[in-house]
């Protein structure tokens, strides 16, 4: 849940990047970290294994500017994608304001994508959230790979409700900011509703 601080005139929101192992969640954050100016970002923290697989989470605090005199701050988290880290994923979803699902476009990863979306839905339910009601966008990553599935197929499988979706090549930054802006916008719109 967002944290509205009237004392320091700040609003803090939490965005979680979810998706199967090696889909590029950490790469999204790394690109944002590397391409955001110093004043707008804090330190990026990665709790990873020695082989650079996310073990617990990555964390990146960002300031986006002011709305009506309130500083808007977004805390970006990733979850560990590998199936057996489910307990950690549940913990990171606590207090989430919006979710980015990073799908791996490669045909071979389709089953992993589907499993991960289902896992996201279940884990959100456990925290009392409904995936259909919270701010949620999909990013189809790795669009540059030759074995990437057609967009239409990905949409049919992973996005039956037609939520906002973005094609991306995360290491090059393609689609990365577009995805971030879309989820931030949805979260702020949700706050406007006062829920």
């Amino acid at each position: 849940m967002s944290f509205i601080n009237y004392s320091s005139r700040e609003i803090n929101c939490k965005i979680v990047y979810y998706g199967p192992g090696l889909c590029g969640k950490t790469t999204n954050l790394q690109f944002i970290y590397a391409n955001t100016n110093q004043q707008a970002k804090g330190k990026m923290i990665s709790l990873a294994t020695e082989t650079e697989r996310t073990l617990f989470f990555d964390f990146l605090p960002l300031s986006l500017g002011e709305i009506r005199g309130f500083k808007t701050r977004f805390h970006l988290y990733t979850v560990p994608g590998q199936v057996f880290y489910d307990a950690s994923r549940k913990l990171i979803l606590k207090g989430v304001d919006g979710v980015v699902f990073v799908a791996d476009s490669q045909i071979e990863r389709m089953e992993a994508n589907i499993e991960s979306v289902e896992n996201l839905r279940t884990n959100l339910q456990e925290q009392g959230y409904d995936l259909d009601k919270i701010p949620y966008v999909i990013q189809y990553n790795k669009r540059d790979l030759p074995n990437a599935a057609p967009l239409e197929e990905l949409q049919n499988l992973l996005n039956p409700k037609g939520i906002p979706h973005f094609e991306a090549v995360a290491p090059k930054g393609e689609g990365v900011y577009e995805t971030l802006k879309a989820i931030a916008r949805l979260i702020l719109t949700e706050l406007k509703k006062g829920t």
Binding site: I4, Y6, I11, L64, G65, E66, I67, R68, F70, T72, A184, R185, L188, T189, L191, K192, K193, G194
Partner: peptide, 14 residues
């Protein structure tokens, strides 16, 4: 919420 009165323009400006 103090954000109840923000407009779409406010969000766009960000």
């Amino acid at each position: 919420s103090p954000f109840a009165e923000i407009t779409d323009d406010d969000i766009d400006n960000l």
